[in-house]
């Protein structure tokens, strides 16, 4: 990738949003939409690594996000419970550092579970793999729901609100840069080879199992990060946020953006998140002006129609397999 240009573009994005936010043009509502979009960027880009780049088919991505959310959420809440009594001298640790570590640990545990799941299941193909990952996602949800220590169906509550625009932006930026670099490395070449033809890649000496599991674990790691960020944004985690329907929403981002295109995933994450809110405001506005009996419950009907239309007019997704110039592969590979 063209790292300097990407860095400049990202910093410019960050600066514009921060300035608009400080000027009050972007209010808190706008900021939560942007924060959610960035979390969806992490989820979509990491799922794209599994589904788009390595050519596997995961339907349980939010299961890993759940692991990240619960692990990091438990760590930070425990830490602040422990910090109160005097015998613990953890006061010296800055809270932000604990938060950062908790998020990363959440991602690592998610990655570990990704490896555990990946080894046996990645010998399955296509739709069979999809359903096994879906199954694992639901198992994770069911187990969390049955554990009272993390709240069970009441959810994990009282998580400190550490996630803000800056933190989420940094993680989203790092996710894109790291995954882009992986794709450019020889690892990424191997993954692309597996996507194009696994048997041929095997014959050419690519250890397909190893690369598939690596891709799966990396995807799970970043999904775990996203889950942790989300939990610290809305200050709670609940099993129903991480079910099969939520995974399907991330899947939509990857394919509506374009399979294998990180640019597409980023665009789709922003576009569909903003679309949801624009429809919410638009439907309310139409209702207020015309007094027609069309309330906010029609928002999702329109969203579903637009989604179908996008795919009919852009069957390969918004970007197809192309990348924006600043995210394209370096010249030496091309």
């Amino acid at each position: 990738m063209n790292f300097p240009k990407f860095l400049v573009a990202s910093v410019a994005f960050y600066a514009i949003v921060q300035v608009l936010s400080m000027l009050g043009i972007f209010n808190g509502y706008m900021m939560i939409i942007i924060n959610k979009s960035l979390i969806y960027v992490i989820l979509a880009v990491s799922l794209n690594l599994i589904n788009g780049i390595t050519g596997q088919f995961s339907l349980g991505h939010m299961g890993f996000a759940a692991v990240g959310a619960y692990v990091s959420g438990t760590i930070t809440t425990l830490f602040f419970k422990l910090r109160a009594p005097r015998e613990f001298s953890l006061d010296a640790l800055p809270a932000e550092l604990v938060f950062f570590c908790a998020i990363v640990v959440g991602g690592l545990v998610a990655a570990f579970i990704g490896v555990l799941i990946g080894f046996p299941s990645l010998r399955l193909k296509g739709d069979y793999l999809a359903i096994v990952t879906l199954g694992f996602g639901e198992i994770i949800k069911s187990v969390i729901n049955g554990i009272d220590y993390v709240g069970g169906p009441r959810g994990l509550l009282g998580i400190a609100p550490f996630s803000n625009f800056t933190v989420i932006f940094i993680f989203a930026f790092l996710t894109i840069v790291i995954i882009r670099n992986v794709i450019e490395s020889s690892h990424g070449r191997a993954m692309l080879a597996i996507r194009e033809n696994e048997l041929a890649a095997d014959l050419a000496g690519v250890d397909s199992t190893r690369y598939k599991v690596t891709g799966f674990a990396m995807g799970a790691f970043f999904a775990g990060i996203a889950g942790g960020l989300l939990a610290h944004l809305i200050q709670m985690a609940h099993p129903t946020q991480y079910g099969f329907l939520a995974s399907a929403m991330v899947l939509i981002l990857v394919y509506a953006g374009g399979m294998g295109s990180l640019t597409g995933s980023i665009i789709a994450a922003f576009l569909l998140t903003f679309l949801t809110e624009a429809l919410r405001l638009g439907v309310d506005w139409v209702h207020e002006i015309t007094k027609l009996p069309i309330g906010t419950e029609w928002t999702m009907v329109i969203y579903a129609l637009l989604l179908i239309l996008i795919m009919l007019f852009k069957p390969d997704g918004l970007m197809g397999m192309r990348e924006a110039k600043i995210l394209q592969l370096g010249r030496k590979h091309a």
């Binding site: 899947l251 939509i252 999702m300 009907v301 069957p315």
Partner: peptide, 19 residues
């Protein structure tokens, strides 16, 4: 891509019947 439209059709039917 037809998988995504399938999800779209599913969402449409549910939300339309509900709305």
């Amino acid at each position: 891509s037809s998988l995504v439209t399938a999800i779209g059709v599913s969402m449409f039917l549910e939300y339309f019947f509900s709305a």
